[in-house]
Structure formats: C-alpha cells, structure tokens
Design a protein around this nucleic acid. Sequence first.
DNA 1: AACTAATTCAACCGCGCGTAT
DNA 2: GATACGCGCGGTTGAATTAGT
Length: 344
Amino acid sequence: MGRAPCCDKSNVKRGPWSPEEDAKLKSYIEEHGTGGNWIALPQKIGLKRCGKSCRLRWLNYLRPNIKHGGFSEEEDNIICSLYISIGSRWSIIAAQLPGRTDNDIKNYWNTRLKKKLLGKQRKEQHAARSRGEAGLKQQQQQDMIKRSNNIGSNGSIDTNNPPYWPEVPVMAPILPYEQQQFDDKDHASIRKLLIKLGGRFSDDHDDDQVLIHEGKNFPFPSFDHQQFLEQQSIVLNAMPSTASMEVMNGNQFVQNHQYRAFPVGIEEEDMVFSNNNQQQNLEGLEFLYSENNNRIESSAGWGEMMMMSSLVFPPAMASNGVELPPQMLEEGGSSDQLRYSSDL
DNA sequence: AACTAATTCAACCGCGCGTAT
DNA sequence: GATACGCGCGGTTGAATTAGT
C-alpha cells in the first residue's frame, strides 16, 4: 500500500503564489507563528494550499532576511568546503550561510557552481594533455616556420605551396548541459578537485585577489601585446580584443589574451566565404592565447575560419627553446599588417 | 521580428526520520 | 513495540526568462 497523501490534491491550489496569498501567509505567521502544525495552517488562514507548500513558501521566500542571488566568492568557498565534507546536505550548508535557503543553494550549485567547477576541471585536464603533447607541437611549430617562408616579402602567397595550416584536431564535442552526464564519477572528480583546491571554489591565496577583467580595463601591463603580436604576425594579422586573468593549476596565475586575427598576406577581401554572413562576422574571429603554456586555448570562428582553432603559435617564447629567424619577423611582421588596438 | 535552445529557479514530490499515542 | 502523523530533506519538474540564430 502506498503512502497516504498529505492533503487532498484535488482541493488545493498549486503553482506560483499570488501576492495576496503571500500577504495572507506572511501576516498570519508574523502574528501567530506557525503553531507547530503546517498541515493545519492553510485551513486557519483560509488558503487553498497544501501545508507543505505553505511551509516551503515561508521558508524559501517570505521569512525575513532572505537573500536571493548574488552569491559572493566567500559564500562559494563555504559551499564548496562543506560539499567536500558532507556532500549534498543542503540544509546543513544553508545553516552556515545566513539568509540563504537550502533550495537556493541547491539550485545555485546545480545550475552554476558545478558547471563552473567542471569547466575548471576540464581546463586542467586539457592543459595536462597539452603538456604531454609539447614535443609534438614543437615539431609542428618548426614545420610551420619553414612553410611560412612561402609568404613573400610583399605579403603575396605562393599558391603552389601555401602557408602552413595545421589540421584541425579532432575534439570531443561539447554537449549542452542537459546532455552532459554528471554521474558518480563526475561527482567524485568534483570532490577530488575541490579537495585539491583546499575546499575553495577559487584557488586564490588569502592575500591575493582573483580578478576578472575585460577589454580596456585590463590592468596587467606586464604583458607586451605589441611585442607579442609582432612576434606572431608571421602567421597572423591580429589585434587584441579582450583579456582576462585567472588562476590555474593551484597557485599559478595566468593571463589569457583574446585576439581577432586572420592570416598574414591574406587581406579581408581575399578571404573565401561560403556565405555573406561570414564576411560580416570577420571581426568575430577570435582566439585565446594563454600565457601559461604559450598556446591557443580556444577560439571562435565561422566556417573555413575554424581552422584557426588548431593554430600553434610560432615559438616566440624562450621556453620553447626555438627562436624565430629575424628575417621572418621582418617579412611577415611589418607594421602595416599589424593592427593594434589602443583601446586595450 | 520570430523562432528555438538553454538556463534559471520556484514549487512539487516522495521518502526517511522523529515523536506522540 | 506498533502505528499514525507531521516535518524536513534532497531530487526533480516545468514555467518563465534569457540568449542565440
């Protein structure tokens, strides 16, 4: 035999609460309290609601000093810390965050925090894989330099032997959130990552502050965009678009720089587009360069332009152990091909 | 502007537990 | 000890909103 329902479902109102219902419930509880019996409460007030529904409405929305949204970094860290030690005990976690309800925290975790954390985790895995492929990439970089010689000093291209475009790597498709499976393995790996981060969502130091900046507010002058682009323009015309700072791999601060780009020697009007929209969207061709490992992290583009996503930067950084021949910089990196945004 | 997909979050559901009888 | 009942919790649903095409 099944469990008896807590109320007559056919005789109670369901769905969103009206302001009138809210007012009735709020004023009654503020004046008389709950009386220790939620089931009997709606009858006393004259509400056609299930007692459980009244309780939920009061606890999650009507009771005083409830905060909605706008979770702080500190709250994120508390949630993550507690999640490590006790798991999805939302009511206990909520008890540590004044003004927050278990329902709110649960929703926040499921819709945002978990995703944020999984994104961070996948980035770490990606970086780890890339470190393993460093040797192979170095070879590709040298190959690219050789092929770049086929760009003439006037910017024209030897069509029989065009500049090097590495093949686009086969990547696992990024599924929409609903199609991603957060099974026990994911749950375990999230916990593992959180433990690694010391229970904090953000792995910043106590005396450091993690800052996310975009566009012209980017405050880190130590990265020389002009020099960087001059070095890279053997392959690309590029201009800085946006930049951000984040923390990866525990304590290491990393600056990411986003650029708009197209190959050197290929002017905008020379690009082959499969439709007009792509031409209009040329400005949207972007890639993200990570100072951390001297490589492109990601890109956004259209149609044929997606080949950009596989570009490996020429070994301009000393850590690669390979240096660009000076004449390459002169040939490909002339200032008229380099567009630099002073807005940054 | 219209349509679709993705995201958010309030509300619902059913189960386990504690307590009164 | 057995039963009934209400409370509280975590998981899930679906409407509303927002973002993307």
